[in-house]
């Protein structure tokens, strides 16, 4: 039973204040997602109709960006060969946090039609954490947009935390990357 006497209001702990600010940030983050498109596979052809007047991605506040530093979402469309995986890891590590990964098509899930190729990786989430998959070969623009809405829900419910997993299980991801690629080192040619 609630007492009617005056009681000192319990002040919030630091964790609660941080959580509240993080939720405020989440509102802005899920309403303004900027894409970095990594278009190597055939799924990239589904992006122009989902961006232009037919499905209009911009009404959700999304849009393409030029460089990894500016972007929030790394959009992996299609298969990844070993050469492109190395560039993808570099690109992912350059992005500023919080960052999310959306994988289009069946190739990043299980290899798709390239599952038996010697030069193509089969599961993307062995190497970098993936927040949302959009299945299909190729997914049509409705399902692409549906995937983005799922990602927004994930940000709201705090389930889209792949970038935290990448910190926590960094050794595991690095070991998987090294197993297929050999050495993964970022060469800084400018400052050498």
């Amino acid at each position: 039973m609630i007492s009617t006497k005056y009681t000192v209001k319990q002040s919030l702990t630091k964790e609660e204040i941080d959580r509240k600010w993080w939720e405020v940030g989440d509102y802005f983050r899920r309403n303004s997602l900027w894409l970095l498109m990594y278009c190597t596979g055939c799924c990239a052809i589904e992006l122009p109709p989902s961006m232009t007047s037919a499905y209009d991605m911009e009404r959700l506040g999304m849009g393409p960006m030029a460089t990894p530093r500016q972007a929030d979402i790394l959009l992996v469309s299609g298969y990844l060969s070993l050469k492109t995986l190395r560039r993808l890891v570099y690109t992912y590590e350059q992005m500023s946090e919080p960052k999310y990964v959306v994988a289009l098509g069946s190739c990043p899930i299980n290899g798709g039609i390239y599952h038996d190729s010697h030069a193509v990786i089969n599961q993307l989430d062995q190497y970098i954490p993936v927040d949302t998959y959009v299945a299909g070969c190729m997914p049509n623009p409705e399902s692409v947009l549906n995937g983005f809405v799922d990602l927004m829900e994930g940000i709201k419910n705090k389930t889209a935390n792949g970038w935290k997993k990448y910190h926590e299980h960094n050794e595991w991801y690095k070991k998987n990357q090294k197993d297929v690629l050999g050495e993964v080192a970022i060469e800084d040619e400018f400052h050498q």
């Binding site: 940030g25 802005f28 983050r29 309403n31 303004s32 232009t52 911009e58 009404r59 506040g61």
Partner: peptide
């Protein structure tokens, strides 16, 4: 197109 919300630029900056 439908276009973004009118306060989209504020959302972008605060994000």
């Amino acid at each position: 197109r439908q276009g973004p919300k009118w306060y989209q630029e504020f959302l972008d900056i605060f994000k």
